[in-house]
Structure formats: C-alpha cells, structure tokens
C-alpha cells in the first residue's frame, strides 16, 4: 500500500511536502496556503487535489470546507472521479461543508462585521470540537472573491475574517487553504487585498497559462513558493518549484517543462 502510494506522488505533492514520510502526517499544519489563479487557468484542481490528500494523510483528519462558488454536489462529483467519496466522509464526520453560496452580509447601514463574525463563529465552533480529539484539521475556502462579494465589497472585512482564520492556524495548528483570482485585482488601487494575502501566506501556489501560448498537452504552469516560516515542527527554508501540469479526468499530471514527450 505504501509503495503504491509513493508511486502516485506527483510534483505538486512534492512541492507541498506531502511525499516526505516524516512524523508530521499533514505538512500543511499551522500554515496558510494561498492558491492564485486567473481566468485563463483555473486552479480549482489544486483544491481538489489537496482535499483528496487531506483525507488520505491521516485516518482521523478532518476538513472544513467553506463553499462560496460551488455547491456540495459539484465537489462530490469531482472528488468521486479522483477516488474520494465526499458524501461518505461527510457522514463519517470528517468533512464539514459550510454552504456559503447565499451568504449576504447585512447592508452598510448595519455593521458588516456581524455577518463575517458569525461566519467565523461557525468555523470556530467546528474547529474547537474537532480540536479536542487532536485531529489534523484543514480549513478550505474555495473562492475569496465571492467572499468579498458577500461582504459588500469591503476588502477590509474580508481581511479581518482571513486574519481570524489565520489565528486558527497558530492556535489549533489548522491548515488554512484559500483560492483567489489574481487578475481581478489588476486594477491598481484595489490590489491591497491580494498583496496582503500574499504577505500572510506561508505557501503560495500560482497557476498561470503557458507563457508561450496554448498547447494541447500542457494546460498551464504552477509556481509554488514555500516561504521560510517557523511553525510547530521547526523552520522550513524557502523553496520554489516550477512545473507544468495537465488536468486529466481522474487526476492531474505534473511534469517539468520540456520533459513531456
């Protein structure tokens, strides 16, 4: 079983440290992973991949998923293709799906903070229960930009929520994984939120189209920047990884540029 799994590690797993067989079953513990994509190249597959790995990392690991862009049925279908049954995990108490599709914070007349504060309250309630069993926990947000829409465009409120989620990484050793779109912030003055998130992130995964244009066999490139951070398990040095990927029906294929035949 172990050997089989080892064969399946791809470059993304290596870049995120999933392949290392050390005492830490879930290398994202206590870290904030930010996935950035753009219109041309969606990075939703990175979330799917991490979700799958999160369940296989530890028999009792749990995932709290804040869905802003897709309903549960969507993720259930996608993950089923990857060989992971989300409905079963949900019934086992390992997958907590918070449907935020219809989230709308109160208008500016009232205070916005209450809306997101109650979201955080929901998150924290789940986390505190899970933490009592010392289970590795991952929190995933599938689209920060929709969170911003729900917060009536107030990036400050979004950053507050992100900050609070970030405190969970140090308080409970949770992994925090979020996806956002880089190109919606290209408009100069509104870029503070993405910059702030990049400062906050311990690991940055950027999905971009190929610089040379479209290709049949390569769907895009991933750049992984693993910043040096101090965490529970010591210090990890800065690492950068750069590779191409191809999304298949039941998984992804990662390879170094030029090595695909």
């Amino acid at each position: 079983m172990m050997m089989m799994e080892q064969k399946n590690w791809n470059l993304l797993d290596e870049a995120l440290g999933f392949h290392s067989n050390n005492a830490n079953p879930w290398p994202l513990c206590g870290r904030f992973l930010l996935v950035e994509d753009c219109v041309d190249t969606s990075a939703a597959f990175v979330l799917h991949h991490i979700l799958k790995r999160a369940f296989s990392s530890h028999p009792s690991s749990a995932v709290l998923f804040l869905a802003f862009s897709h309903p549960f049925s969507h993720y259930d279908r996608v993950l089923r293709k990857l060989g992971c049954n989300l409905a079963a995990q949900r019934d086992n108490g390992r997958f907590f799906f918070l449907d935020m599709l219809m989230l709308q914070c109160p208008d500016e007349g009232k205070s916005n903070h209450d809306g997101l504060a109650s979201v955080f309250e929901q998150i924290e309630r789940v986390i505190t229960v899970l933490h009592q069993d010392k289970r590795p926990i991952s929190i995933m947000v599938d689209d920060i930009s929709f969170l911003e829409v729900a917060a009536n465009g107030s990036s400050n409120d979004v950053l507050n929520l992100l900050h609070y989620c970030h405190t969970l990484t140090s308080d409970y050793g949770c992994a925090f994984i979020a996806l956002d779109h880089k190109d919606i912030y290209l408009n100069g003055d509104r870029d503070a939120i993405i910059l702030e998130m990049e400062y906050l992130a311990d690991i940055l995964v950027k999905a971009e189209p190929l610089a040379t244009g479209l290709a049949k066999d390569v769907h895009g490139q991933l750049k992984v920047l693993d910043k040096e951070t101090q965490h529970q398990y010591g210090i990890s040095a800065i690492k950068t990884h750069n590779f191409h990927f191809k999304i298949k029906e039941n998984g992804i294929e990662c390879f170094y540029p030029g090595t695909k035949i």
Partner: peptide, 26 residues
C-alpha cells in the same frame, strides 16, 4: 492584538479553550 483584534472570539470563547491552551506542552 493578534489573537482577537476585534473581539469576535469573545462571543464563542469558552473557558475550556483557555485551559487547553495552558496545558498544551509546547
């Protein structure tokens, strides 16, 4: 000012959490 800059956690924070934090060996 990091853990709870806006007082959001005050509402949910139970004394249990404080105890677990203190007994955490690290």
């Amino acid at each position: 000012c990091y853990t709870d800059p806006l007082g959001w956690k005050d509402k949910t924070r139970k004394p249990v959490n404080v105890v677990t934090n203190v007994t955490d060996p690290s």
